[in-house]
Amino acid sequence: MGTNYKISEKRFVRRITLDGRDESLKDLRFKKSGFKKCIQCGRCTGSCPTTVIHKEFNPRDMMRRFMFEDIHSDHVNEIIWKCGQCYSCRARCPRNCKAGLGVIALQHKSYEDGKAPKNIVEIGEKIRSNLYSKGETITPESYYLNLKEEFGKKTAERCSDNPTKREKLGFKSDDAREIPIPEDALDEVRYLMRLTGFKETNDGSEN
């Protein structure tokens, strides 16, 4: 479908051409967003907690972009990261579409292409590495932030001792699991990860 957008630099006219169709985004989630069923009613946008904070993000408009594959611009690459993934858009959609799901597909493409924002790349690497080394996404370390700076003095005072407290409860300080995942099970997880695109060198084990 008409994906070849030629936007003239001097004239603000979009051109949908007859030939040279781009491949649609392969990610299953893109299709499953249900954009084909969308009637652009805007109920998603009216329900979206992001739109009221980042006005450039608008789930209805995202769906329109999905329809016309208007998803490759820098602007789109920037706004997709504003979505909070709450799926309020999905819950209230009269046609049961999932704008948020299409957005993750775009986020993932952006991440794969190395176009994700720096902080996402950082968290991403951490999460992927946790997944590869422990079978977990979030680990206690991910949360050992500068508590005072992030959450305030009282919270820092109350929570700075949490690593010790968790150990008293029988949890390790560096693992989310009471009983860490056994090595053979972890091998299975890693096998599946490699099979689905994780590269041992730059994403997973980092060795």
């Binding site: 006219v13 979009r14 949908i16 051409t17 007859l18 652009q40 408009d61 329109r64 208007d70």
Partner: peptide, 21 residues
Amino acid sequence: EKLLARVEDTLGGGVTDIEAD
């Protein structure tokens, strides 16, 4: 060889020329 329909995509796509035959 081809036709061009000019329309504003009022839902956000702006002025658009659609090529058609």
